[in-house]
Design a protein around this nucleic acid. Structure first.
Length: 564
RNA sequence: GUUCCCGUAGCUCAGCAGGAUAGAGCGUUCGCCUCCUAAGCGAAAGGCCGCGCGUUCGAAUCGCGCCGGGAACGCCA
């Protein structure tokens, strides 16, 4: 992008207008035949009282060509610039190869902390496909921020508190005790939970019993706490396997139970600052001035709520991590909740609430019916991943019967296909789960990008190495090679924008651009050419493409196998 | 009812700090493996960019009003 700045600089000299303003006007033409950069002269028409084409022609005369630009041409009201291809190719390829796995990243976040809350599963509940968006998006953002130099804190805000644990204990004691919890599975716990609800329909006393047991957990009764802890351990052990498959790691599992003793302070402070109002027995913060329903802090029975816990958690995170940004990767159903709780923080005088952001996303629905734990209409994430891995393995057996580590490649590609499905569209779109869609590996998919990467690796392997020094980039003169160079050059900017907007799909689109450009280049230009100079230049380009795809995939949480 | 989000090709979606002929994948039809992985490449067909008004030299993109779909709206999270 230095070329863009150079153009702005010479335009500034020619017009006398501020460089920054002009740089903002410069755009990329829709067709590369028109040029590599364009300056729309309509912008200046009013101020200069001249027709745009005349301005363009005049500018072209006055302008001294900036470095990296070969020529300028007038096209209607536009002044188009053509980059020096060899220069662009050389800069782009050598940068990608020199930076290696770091290409695409930056150091703009040095010494700054970012909190990313995501996944946030419930203990003793299914880890189902509804949890996929938050897990995949959060993981990708975590990696993107890290690549930009930030220290990130990946937080799994566990749902590990509440009367449902009283219910679990009752159900376990009544129907599950024949088997130690450690030898059980979350699915069995879920069955017990479902059964509890069925039986409680008939026998209301079960609910009282459940409340009693939850009270015991709260009071620290050894038996109750022990059972609760074992449910938690079992769940974390099981989901750990899924996280392992997904390449997801957390720095903190501080969830609801963690904040139990940290809420009173904030309740007291709200009270002292006169923000707390008692209404219908509950303690609330009135937000009608901001056209929002009140934020309930304490229920009429004295219990705290989600918002209370989130207030305490936000405070704790600011104090502990001193973040410059704190993200909540949570579905858009909770838009109002976040607006309310951010507003309450603001009213408390926590100016840093401006750094908190609700990174919302659309909902996952089933083709038929809705997801519901209680009714057993659940698709476990693990099952989806396993099915995808299995299908991938079948494909590999058919297409690459000689491949050595088939299982390993199948895992990377099978999981990649699923994760990709979530990350290649903007967050806000709702999605409906369909096996056919999720198991489609053609076109703009994770497997396509991974396949392209494996293709690059294959060519480089066959070449048996090449000398990176003294490559003549002017030999990359084919249109498909130029297009590939441009796609590769785009990644660093894309990663920054993806972080600004908290939109991983931008990275996914960039990976597709590089992949598609490479496949076209691969088809049109034989890389392992006889001419040693051409061969070397094409190998360098292939290597840069390989690195770019690999890095992009990593940022999205996907692996890049070398063979598949 | 109120507030917020979404509406672009048969389907799923890009494009929306306004710009040059509206793009891609899937699906459909048809081509391309005696050369580097065909999970690939190419071609064809397919669009009043939900509708209307406005702002502008210029609107899929900004504003207002409709229509259609979704979500949330006091003691769940």
């Amino acid at each position: 992008m230095d070329a863009k700045l150079a153009i702005a600089k010479s335009l500034a000299r020619a017009t006398g207008l501020p460089e920054a303003e002009l740089a903002g006007y410069i755009e990329i033409p829709p067709d590369s035949a028109l040029g590599d950069y364009a300056f729309p002269c309509f912008r200046l028409a009013k101020a200069l009282r001249k027709a745009p084409p005349a301005i363009a022609a005049e500018l072209k005369e006055k302008l001294s060509l900036p470095e990296g630009v070969e020529r300028a041409e007038v096209a209607g009201g536009y002044l188009n610039f053509f980059a020096d291809k060899a220069n662009l190719a050389g800069k782009t390829i050598s940068r990608a190869l020199a930076e290696g796995d770091a290409y695409g990243g930056a150091d703009i976040g040095q010494g700054k902390n970012v909190c990313v809350e995501f996944s946030s599963i419930n203990i003793a509940k299914p880890f189902h496909i509804g949890h996929l968006p938050t897990t995949a998006i959060g993981n990708a953002l975590n990696r993107i921020y890290r690549a930009l130099g930030y220290n990130t804190v990946a937080i799994n805000h566990l749902g590990d508190w509440g009367t449902q644990f009283g219910k679990m204990i009752v159900a376990y004691k009544l129907w599950g005790e024949s088997k130690p919890i450690e030898e059980s599975t979350v699915r069995e716990l879920v069955r017990l939970y479902v059964r509890f609800h069925e039986e409680a329909e008939k026998d209301k006393s079960l609910n009282d019993e459940a409340r009693k047991w939850f009270r015991k957990i709260e009071e620290g009764d050894p038996e109750a706490v022990d059972l609760w802890q074992r449910f938690k351990d079992l769940t974390l052990r099981e989901v750990g396997e899924v996280y392992e498959l997904l390449g997801v790691r957390f720095d903190s599992y501080a969830g609801e139970s963690f904040y139990e003793d940290k809420m009173q302070a904030i309740i007291d402070e709200l009270d002292q600052k006169g923000l707390l109002v008692t209404d219908q027995g509950a303690k609330i913060v009135d937000l009608s001035e901001w056209n929002m329903p009140p934020c309930i802090i304490v229920k009429s029975d004295g219990a705290t709520l989600y918002a209370t816990r989130d207030l305490a958690a936000a405070r704790y995170r600011k104090k502990t991590y001193d973040f410059v940004k704190s993200l909540y990767v949570v579905a858009y159903q909770q838009n109002l909740h976040f607006r309310q709780f951010f507003k309450v923080l603001e009213l408390l005088g926590d100016a840093w609430v401006k750094d908190c952001e609700h990174v919302n996303f659309g909902m996952v629905s089933m083709e038929e019916g809705t997801l519901s734990t209680r009714h057993g209409n659940v698709v476990y994430l693990e099952d989806v991943l396993k099915a995808s891995i299995e299908k991938t393995l079948d494909i590999i057996k058919e297409k690459s019967p000689d491949l050595e580590n088939k299982e390993e490649a199948a895992r990377a590609v099978g999981v990649g296909a699923i994760v990709w499905g979530v990350l290649y569209n903007s967050r806000i779109k709702d999605t409906s789960f369909s096996w056919a869609k999720v198991l489609n590996f053609d076109g703009e998919t994770g497997p396509y990008a991974q396949y392209t990467h494996a293709r690059c690796c294959s060519v480089l392997r066959k070449a048996g190495g090449y000398d990176q020094k003294g490559v003549d980039y002017a030999l990359l003169k084919e249109e498909s090679a130029e297009a590939l160079v441009k796609a590769i050059a785009q990644l660093p900017d894309t990663v920054k924008t993806a972080a600004e907007k908290n939109e991983p799909y931008l990275v996914a689109r960039s990976v597709i651009d590089v992949s598609a450009a490479f496949n076209k280049f691969y088809y049109e230009c034989r890389i392992l050419e006889d001419d040693p100079k051409v061969r070397r230049a094409r190998l360098a380009l292939t290597d840069a493409a390989r690195q770019t795809i690999r890095n992009g995939l990593y940022l999205l949480g996907l692996e890049a196998p070398e063979r598949m």
